[in-house]
Computed example of a mutant assay.
Amino acid sequence: MADSTNESYQKNYAKLQEIAQKLSNSEEIDIDELVPMVDEATRAYQVCQSRIEAVEAALNKRIASDNDSSDNDE
């Protein structure tokens, strides 16, 4: 399961990079493509942000658990 989540993060992060590159390299952006691109980028960002928050919460929980364990060892 971790691999599919990681792949999802990587896929969505790559999509964000692709859209940003396309926007920065285009002299003129087709207005008909803009809204779908923004929608796609928003979805990709939300997936990435959600994953980052989940990893951060897991790390904080692990750190707190490790701190509790070392406090009990003393």
Rank of each mutant, 00 (worst) to 15 (best):
M1G: 13
A2Q: 15
A2I: 14
A2G: 15
D3P: 04
D3C: 12
D3K: 13
D3R: 14
D3H: 11
S4V: 13
S4L: 14
T5M: 03
T5R: 08
T5N: 04
N6M: 13
E7R: 13
S8K: 11
Y9K: 03
Q10A: 13
Q10M: 09
N12M: 03
Y13D: 01
Y13W: 10
A14E: 10
K15I: 05
Q17E: 08
Q17W: 03
Q17D: 08
E18Y: 05
I19P: 00
A20W: 01
A20P: 02
A20C: 03
A20I: 07
K22G: 05
K22Y: 06
L23T: 06
N25Q: 14
S26M: 04
S26I: 06
E27R: 10
E27T: 14
E27Y: 09
E28Q: 08
I29F: 02
D30T: 05
E33C: 00
L34H: 06
L34S: 00
L34T: 00
V35K: 04
V35Q: 01
P36W: 06
P36S: 06
P36N: 09
M37F: 01
M37A: 01
M37Y: 00
M37I: 00
M37C: 02
V38S: 03
V38C: 03
D39G: 02
E40A: 04
E40W: 03
A41I: 05
T42Y: 04
T42A: 00
R43C: 00
A44Y: 02
A44L: 06
Y45G: 01
Y45C: 06
Q46K: 12
V47T: 06
C48Y: 06
Q49C: 04
S50G: 11
S50E: 10
S50A: 08
R51P: 00
R51K: 08
I52S: 04
I52F: 10
I52L: 14
E53R: 12
E53M: 11
V55C: 07
E56G: 02
E56H: 09
A57V: 14
A57I: 12
A58D: 14
L59R: 11
L59V: 13
L59C: 06
L59Q: 12
K61P: 05
K61E: 14
K61S: 15
R62V: 08
R62D: 12
R62F: 12
I63Y: 06
I63Q: 07
A64F: 09
A64H: 11
S65V: 01
S65C: 05
D66Y: 07
D66G: 08
N67Q: 15
D68V: 14
D68A: 15
S69M: 15
D71T: 14
D71E: 11
D71M: 15
D71P: 04
N72E: 13
E74M: 09
E74R: 09
E74P: 07
E74N: 12
